[in-house]
Simulated scan of single mutants.
Amino acid sequence: MEPKIHRSYHPMPLDVNRERSKPKETDRSFQEVLGQQLTLSKHARQRLEERNIEIPSEQWNKIGEKLTEAKRKGVRDSLVLTKEAVLVVNTNSNTVVTAMDKQSANSRLFTNIDGTIIM
């Protein structure tokens, strides 16, 4: 029997100043992304805190958009490269599995990744 995994949630903020109009077909995927939460695993949350990595909410929104696009293309596990950090994200569960600063990532080998998102 597998142990239960406890996950922390990092909600993605909604842009309340966005114009309210009837959604177009292309806007739906964007609204779906904003309606979803990007989950941080306990491990990823600890790594972000330990390494003093702060990712602005606007960046989380962009990451969410790209993850939705990657998921549509069949990507399951993605390496996300930002200015602030390198993230490994499971697109099926929208879960950030681990995080590290870019300097720490320079000497790492990433396996079981089937997609890369460069922000």
Rank of each mutant, 00 (worst) to 15 (best):
H6E: 14
H6W: 12
R7Y: 15
P11D: 08
M12V: 15
M12A: 09
V16N: 07
N17S: 00
N17M: 01
R18W: 10
R20M: 12
S21H: 12
S21D: 04
K22D: 07
K24V: 06
K24P: 01
E25G: 01
D27W: 05
R28N: 11
S29P: 12
F30N: 10
F30S: 04
E32C: 10
V33R: 03
V33K: 02
G35V: 07
Q36V: 02
Q36I: 06
L40D: 02
K42V: 14
K42R: 13
A44N: 03
R45F: 11
R45G: 07
R47M: 10
R47G: 01
L48W: 06
L48S: 04
R51H: 11
R51C: 02
I53H: 05
I53V: 05
E54M: 05
E54H: 14
P56S: 02
Q59D: 11
Q59N: 13
Q59A: 12
K62D: 09
G64F: 05
G64L: 02
E65D: 04
K66F: 03
T68C: 06
T68S: 08
K73V: 05
E84F: 05
E84A: 03
A85V: 04
V89T: 09
V89R: 01
N92E: 12
N94P: 03
T95A: 06
V97Q: 10
T98F: 15
A99L: 07
A99T: 03
M100P: 03
D101M: 03
K102W: 10
K102A: 05
S104H: 12
N106S: 13
S107G: 08
L109C: 05
F110D: 05
T111K: 14
I113A: 02
D114E: 07
G115H: 11
T116Q: 05
T116C: 06
I117Q: 00
I118N: 09
